[in-house]
Design a protein around this nucleic acid. Structure first.
Lengths: 337, 337
DNA sequence: GTGAAAGCGCTAACAA
DNA sequence: TTGTTAGCGCTTTCAC
C-alpha cells in the first residue's frame, strides 16, 4: 500500500498538486466538480494531510500552546476546557506545557516558540516568575501572546483577568461582616500583579472597616503542601485570636482545613475560612467551603478568542483588548453559612 | 534583522548546512571544535530550529499526543503530569486532546494522527466508545499506541491498567465487613472492560460473602451531573434498605453526597460510601471519603515509558508489555472510619 | 570530518 | 479555473 499524499491524488486525478491542494482547502478558485472529485478520491484513499509539510509551506502551524503552572487545579483544568472548545471549533490543535511554577521552565518553553512551533500562545505566568524578558522576546518575534489569570506587568499584550482586587475585598468584607477581626491572608504569588491586587483588596477592606493591617498575618505560601501546612499551623499558633482566613489558592484548602483540624479550631465557630477555589467539591467539604469562584471556562474562551482574532487579522494583540471577567462569592458554612 | 536558520549559520561559518545540522544534533561525525563553533554562533544569533521542517525532513515529529475523556478530573490531570514528566525528559512535546467522552470526537482525533502529526499516542478511551476500528487503523499505520486506565478489548497493543477487579472486590468487601448488605453500584462505563472488571469484582465479593446480586442496584451513570444526581436519588428512594454505595468515578462523588444529604440519609450511619477517586479533597469532605486511589501519576509515567521504548526500538508495542499497577484503598469515615 | 544534493509533502506566487 | 515552479528549513544518503 503506497503512501497517499497530494502527489498521488494529483496523479490519479490528472490534476496538479496545487489544484488538489486548493480543492482540499475549499478554495474559491476551484470548480465545484473538481472539488468533489478530489474530495471523493481523498476520502476513498483515506488521505490524511501531513501537518508538518503544511506548516512548513504555509508558515502557519494551526497549533496554539497553552502554558500553565499546573494542571491538577480545577481552575486551570476548566480554563483548558474553554480554550480547547474554541480551538477545536477553529480547527486548531492545542499543545499544553506545564511550568510547575518554575520560571526557568517557562523560559525554556517560550524559547522554543520562537522557532515557529505554534501560531500563538496563551499563558498564565508561574508563581516564581519575576522577569518578563522571555515574554518580551516572544512578542518581538511577533508571536501573539495572551495572558490570563496571572499576568505580568509591563508586558504589552492583552490579558484576561478577573477582578482580583474587588473580589478579594469582597471576600474580606464578608469575613468582617461575619464578625472576624483577625484575618490571616494566605498569599500565593505576591510577586505577581494578581497577588498584589488580592492583597491590596484585603488591605482596602480592612482599612475601610477600621481594622488594622497586620503584616504578620500575611503568609507567603509555596508550592509544597507540607510546607504550607506547617506555615499555616505556625501562624495560627502565633496568633491565637485569629478568627478568619482568606486563602488565595485552591491548592491551599487542604492545608488550611487540616491545620484547623489539628489545632482543634472549629470552622466556622472559631475560625471562618474562605478560599479562592474552583473545585466542585467545595460544596461537600466539612464544613462546606465559602469560595471565590473565578470564571475559568469563560476566561479560557475569552483568551482563545482574543488570540484567534489576532491570528485572523495578522495583527499584534493590543493591551487595549484586555478583559476583566467577574468572579463570584459563593457563601457556604465555612463562614457561617 | 534577518531570520536566522541553518543556512544563515552555515554561511557565516563557512560550513555546509549539513555539517551545521549534524553539529547541532551533536553527531559523532563532527569534530569537537566545529561543534563548539556552531553552538557558539547559534547561541549568539539566538537560533531556534524550525520544528516543522525538522519533522518533515526526519519523519519524526518529536511530539506525542494524549487523548483523554476530560481534564477536570484528578486522575487524568495527575496522569498528564506523569506523562509530561517523562516526555519532558526526552525532549518531546505533548499535544492534549479531549474527547469529552464522545466516540465521534475520538475517531476524528485519531484520524488526524494518521498524517504523521505525532510519533505516538497515549490514550484513555471515552466512556461512549464501543468500536475499536479507529484504534486498529492507527496501529495499521504503525503509529504506536498505549492505552491506559480505560482500554478496549481486542486491540493488539500495550495497556497500563490498575487492578480493577481486585480493587472493586476489595471495596465491596470493605463495605460488607462494615455491615452493608444492600450495596448500590454506580457504574460509569459498563461497555468498557474497566467497567466490566469493576462490576465483576463487586459481584464476586457479593457472591463470596453470600449476598445476593441485585441487578436493580447497578446504575449506569452518564456524563451529566444533573442526570446522575437524579439517578442516585431514584435508586436510593426505590431501595430504602440501601446501606452502601460504591461509586466508580470521581465525578459522581458530588451527586452521591448531595443525594444522600437531600434524602436525609446520613453517611456513614445510614449509608456507607466509597468512591474511586484521586481527588485530594477526599480527606476533608463531610464526612471524609473512603476512596480507591489509583496510581495516576505512575500510570502516566509507565505509559509514556512504554511508548518511548517503542519509539526507540522502532518496534510495535506489544500487548505483552502491558502492566497492571495496584490501586489502594484509603479508609476514612464515609465507611465508618 | 565535511560537503553536495536530493528530498520530506505541502503552499503560494505567478502564469496561462 | 487550472498548472508551473519555486520554495519552506531541515535531514540524510552518498561521496570525498
Amino acid at each position: 500500500m503506497e503512501k497517499v499524499n497530494l502527489k498521488r491524488l494529483a496523479e490519479e486525478l490528472n490534476l496538479s498538486t496545487s489544484t488538489v491542494s486548493r480543492a482540499l482547502q475549499d478554495s474559491y478558485q476551484i470548480g465545484d466538480e473538481t472539488k468533489s472529485r478530489v474530495l471523493q478520491l481523498a476520502r476513498k484513499l483515506n488521505y490524511v494531510p501531513n501537518p508538518h509539510a503544511s506548516s512548513l509551506g504555509s508558515r502557519r502551524s494551526k497549533m496554539i500552546s497553552v502554558v500553565i503552572p499546573e494542571v491538577t487545579d480545577s481552575y486551570f483544568a476548566q480554563a483548558i476546557n474553554g480554550i480547547e472548545a474554541v480551538a477545536q471549533e477553529r480547527g486548531y490543535h492545542v499543545l499544553i506545557y506545564l511550568t510547575h511554577e518554575r520560571q526557568q521552565q517557562e523560559q525554556a518553553i517560550l524559547k522554543e516558540f520562537q522557532g515557529g512551533r505554534v501560531d500563538g500562545v496563551i499563558m498564565s505566568v508561574s508563581a516564581e516568575t519575576t522577569s518578563a524578558t522571555h515574554l518580551q522576546e516572544l512578542l518581538t518575534q511577533r508571536v501573539p501572546l495572551i495572558l490570563f489569570d496571572r499576568a505580568l506587568e509591563h508586558v504589552q499584550t492583552a490579558t484576561v483577568l478577573t477582578d482580583d482586587f474587588a473580589s478579594s475585598a469582597q471576600a474580606t468584607w464578608h469575613l468582617i461582616k461575619r464578625g472576624c477581626s483577625t484575618i490571616i491572608f494566605l498569599s500565593y504569588f505576591r510577586n505577581l500583579s494578581i497577588g498584589q491586587a488580592r492583597l491590596a483588596g484585603y488591605r482596602q477592606a480592612l482599612q475601610d472597616s477600621g481594622l488594622p493591617f497586620q503584616p504578620e498575618l500575611v503568609v507567603d505560601c509555596t508550592h509544597s503542601d507540607e510546607h504550607n501546612f506547617q506555615l499555616t499551623l505556625d501562624v495560627l499558633q502565633k496568633h491565637a485570636h485569629t478568627d478568619g482566613i482568606i486563602c488565595t489558592a485552591e491548592g491551599l484548602t487542604l492545608s488550611v482545613y487540616q491545620a484547623c483540624h489539628e489545632l482543634r479550631r472549629s470552622i466556622p465557630a472559631d475560625i471562618k475560612v474562605i478560599c479562592f477555589s474552583n473545585s466542585r467539591s467545595a460544596a461537600i467539604l466539612n464544613p462546606p467551603l465559602t469560595t471565590v469562584v473565578q470564571p475559568a471556562f469563560e476566561t479560557g474562551q475569552a483568551a482563545a478568542n482574543l488570540l484567534f482574532k489576532s491570528l485572523k487579522n495578522k495583527s499584534a494583540v493590543s493591551a487595549a483588548d484586555s478583559q476583566v471577567l467577574p468572579s463570584k462569592l459563593v457563601v457556604r458554612q465555612s463562614t457561617g453559612g
